[in-house]
């Protein structure tokens, strides 16, 4: 089988598991990333806290990993654009995950502001991956303005509830040309496998690994699930039927 690579922007990557680094203790970071086999990680940008001596997260991320800063904390397109430029000045390349949220209860993305930020940042030369509520028209608009992928949520961030919005994500996978990456809500390896079986190009998760009792083992479990789901999708799954269909031949019985 030829190598099954995912192309985003100018990069071709073989791992379809993207990892958020929130809540992962720094001393464990490298091990978790390696166990997940991930090639793309997200990071956030915040004010330095002068009262605390903190280590630099970038020292704990293996060389060659694509770093995708997010715009978390942004409530408007303007704030997301500002954060993206600051992140790029930080020297991590031109990938950016657009995250514009003003709803603090469910942390749902603001699709309208997300679209505005995506359009501007594409023009500014970024590789833009917007986190979005799964709405087909918005996904098509994001694609039209040059998003490198679209990242619909499966369920609200950090809830571990799985693909609650499966039908809508399915439609986006079917109708969009850009890669569809299921971001947020994936809580179990079976959820990740399900997303990949549906034809998602990748999944992005954080909480499910970061809050596991053994984050390194969970990273490996997710890696296997993502690979498994992807292989199943490429293999072409058999259809469902209402009635039984014998697996063994129904002729040639003994008398």
């Amino acid at each position: 089988m030829s190598k099954d690579l995912l192309t985003i922007g100018n990069s071709s990557i073989s791992s379809r598991l993207f990892l958020g680094t929130g809540k992962i203790p720094l001393p464990k970071m490298k091990q978790v990333i390696e166990a997940a086999g991930t090639q793309v990680v997200t990071v956030a940008l915040r004010r330095v806290d002068f009262d605390q001596r903190e280590e630099n997260i970038l020292d704990f991320i293996p060389d060659g990993t694509i770093i995708m800063p997010n715009t978390s904390g942004a409530r408007t397109a303007a704030e997301a654009i500002r954060l993206a430029h600051i992140a790029r000045a930080g020297g991590c390349g031109d990938w950016v995950k657009i995250e514009v949220i003003s709803d603090q209860k469910y942390l749902l993305p603001d699709n309208y502001e997300t679209l505005k930020a995506t359009e501007k940042l594409v023009k500014d030369g970024f590789t833009v991956l917007p986190y979005m509520s799964p709405d087909l028209m918005v996904a098509k608009s994001l694609e039209a303005v040059g998003a490198a992928a679209v990242m619909p949520l499966g369920a609200p961030i950090g809830t571990n509830r799985g693909l609650k919005l499966k039908e809508l994500i399915n439609i986006i996978i079917e109708e969009c040309y850009v890669p569809v990456i299921v971001d947020a809500g994936i809580g179990r390896p079976s959820h990740a496998a399900e997303a990949m079986e549906m034809g998602a190009s990748a999944v992005l998760l954080n909480t499910a690994i970061a809050t596991a009792d053994d984050a390194v083992a969970m990273a490996r479990a997710f890696r296997l699930a993502v690979e498994s789901g992807r292989i199943a999708y490429l293999a072409g799954m058999g259809g469902e039927t209402s009635y039984a269909r014998a697996s063994s031949p129904l002729t040639g019985f003994l008398d």
């Binding site: 958020g20 680094t21 929130g22 809540k23 992962i24 720094l26 997200t42 990071v43 956030a44 940008l45 915040r46 004010r47 330095v48 903190e54 630099n56 997260i57 970038l58 770093i67 800063p69 997010n70 978390s72 500002r82 430029h85 600051i86 992140a87 000045a89 930080g90 991590c92 961030i157 950090g158 947020a184 992005l204 998760l205 954080n206 909480t207």
Partner: peptide
């Protein structure tokens, strides 16, 4: 509100009333 390139940090002098933001990367999803 203007990003200062790293190469210019040593020649940028702080003036009365300036607003400086110093940011860093940390874990995030």
């Amino acid at each position: 509100f203007e990003i200062i390139e790293r190469s210019l940090l040593s020649e940028t002098i702080l003036n009365e009333g300036d607003q400086l933001e110093i940011l860093k990367f940390l874990g995030g999803g």
